[in-house]
């Protein structure tokens, strides 16, 4: 049986979540391994949520926010970027491949990009096998 990674996606309400909505409206297929959790802004994503997800058995964590300059809350996405970058370094120290954490900017009109990026991320994590 092929390995099916478990992935949590934190999506900001204004861009990435709406982008995922558009992927749906446009009926773009992507793997079902990813379960979205809506937050108002990617800046809300506490690195502890990501660590918690890995601890609870996630094989990958996806963070989706607005493009730089487009953040509904001015600069929350830039905070998210810094936090994710630092967390990636920590993950490496902890023996978790930083490729298991991915941050992407997805606008409300980028349904295509959402579906494509999720597909890519699932493939990448699949290649890394289970985290256990």
């Amino acid at each position: 049986m092929t390995f099916k990674p478990k992935i949590v996606a934190f999506l900001c309400n204004w861009c990435a979540y709406a982008g995922a909505d558009l992927a749906g409206t446009s009926r773009l297929r992507y793997p079902a391994n990813i379960v979205p959790i809506r937050v108002m802004c990617s800046g809300r994503i506490d690195p502890e949520f990501i660590l918690e997800a890995f601890e609870r058995g996630a094989d990958g964590v996806f963070v989706g926010g607005c493009h730089p300059g487009d953040c509904h809350y001015v600069s929350g996405n830039l905070r998210a970027r810094r936090r994710v970058e630092i967390l990636k370094k920590l993950l490496k120290e902890m023996g978790i491949d930083p490729k298991r954490l991915r941050l992407e900017w997805i606008s409300a009109s980028e349904g295509q990009k959402f579906a494509k990026t999720v597909q890519e991320f699932v493939n990448d994590v699949q290649g890394l096998h289970g985290l256990a």
Binding site: M40, C41, G43, I45, D46, E48, H72, Y73, S75, R83
Partner: peptide
């Protein structure tokens, strides 16, 4: 405005987002 950037930053978890609590 309710972005929650503060809640993610608070080292002692004493500022929270209403109905998006940790």
């Amino acid at each position: 405005e309710g972005c929650g950037t503060c809640a993610a930053a608070c080292p002692s978890k004493n500022i929270e987002m209403r109905n998006y609590r940790d």
